[in-house]
């Protein structure tokens, strides 16, 4: 499972790459918390909730969303934004929630392991 490889931004801001494999987790979690969101809102939300540390590349976001549509983790439908524009809103499905739990536990296991390594040094 490869989450599109985030490329180094050329804006020069102090921004960190999203760790490989965690893009799905971030999108799933964001949708779980916020409900219905369109693409820009997902990216914006991730950026805000990480205090601008993690920035989602559009180049990774859209292919990732397509993959999640194929997997059936999310569904998409057209709606109207607060600014009265047409936007495609993504919603989490039951399969998506299940996947989120899976990804979270996987991430925690890996994180715990890494933390243990760091602390022993």
């Amino acid at each position: 499972m490869t989450a599109g490889t985030p490329r180094n931004s050329d804006l020069g801001d102090s921004r960190d790459e999203i760790p490989p494999g965690t893009l799905y987790l971030l999108i799933l979690k964001t949708l779980a918390v916020r409900g219905k969101l369109h693409g820009y809102e997902i990216a914006d939300n991730i950026q805000r909730s990480t205090d601008d540390i993690l920035q989602v590349e559009e180049g990774s976001l859209y292919p990732a969303l397509q993959r999640m549509l194929i997997k059936g983790w999310v569904t998409a439908e057209w709606g109207i934004t607060s600014g009265n524009r047409r936007a495609r809103y993504y919603t989490l499905t039951t399969a998506g929630r299940k996947q989120l739990r899976l990804e979270v536990s996987q991430f925690e296991r890996v994180m715990g392991a890494i933390t243990r390594v760091i602390q022993t040094v």
Binding site: S9, L11, E58
Partner: peptide, 20 residues
């Protein structure tokens, strides 16, 4: 700036499309 940040839209579209 927005365009720079977004990158090559055609390419992203192609990548998204290829996902399928």
């Amino acid at each position: 700036a927005a365009h720079r940040k977004f990158g090559n839209t055609t390419r992203i579209q192609e990548n998204s499309y290829m996902t399928w």
